[in-house]
Amino acid sequence: MNLGVEQAKAWIDQMNELFQQQKQYLTELDQAIGDGDHGWNMARGFQEAVDKISSNRYEDLGTLLKDVAMTLIAKVGGASGPLYGTAFLKMSQVLAGKQEGNEQEWIAALGEALAGLKARGKAQVGEKTMIDVWEPVVMFLQEKGQLLAREAAQLAQQKMEETKTLEAKKGRAAYLGKRSIGHIDPGSASSCLLFIAFAKVVES
């Protein structure tokens, strides 16, 4: 199965819909252990990204994903702008010049996004961040060698839930120390929505 420009656009659309629906929930998660703007930031950033890409025609995935990245970098405050911006920028580099990507190419793009996120945020698994969702999901896809998007989304959900038990070591939540335990990490929740949106597009 190949995913091309139209599917990538649908992915961004789908993510935007989920972020609009869940912005209150994401913001509540962030109010508990962060600065309380994650939902609004993601909703605003992805609305801007959709506005930008819906009016353009794209010849290749790289240009499309780069436009998404630059919009997030320009519009989203806090750490989520540079982090999600970096993820989409890395994907755009892997998929540059391609009208569509096969399963391996998309898995490679997600792998580069993960590498970029880890480098940018200097985070590892177990520190109660988006990496706690991204790394197991990407490793699962790499092991299977197929774009098993529904299973990946289920795994993302499970890993997001598991961030509840972790103590935050990065970002604003790290100031809370042990008091961060018992709360889902907001970045892992928005990352989970990204993989749910991906599964919806792959399955349709």
Partner: peptide, 11 residues
Amino acid sequence: GNNGEIGTNAL
């Protein structure tokens, strides 16, 4: 700031 709000902006 970030577009007139609290935050930072890479661009």
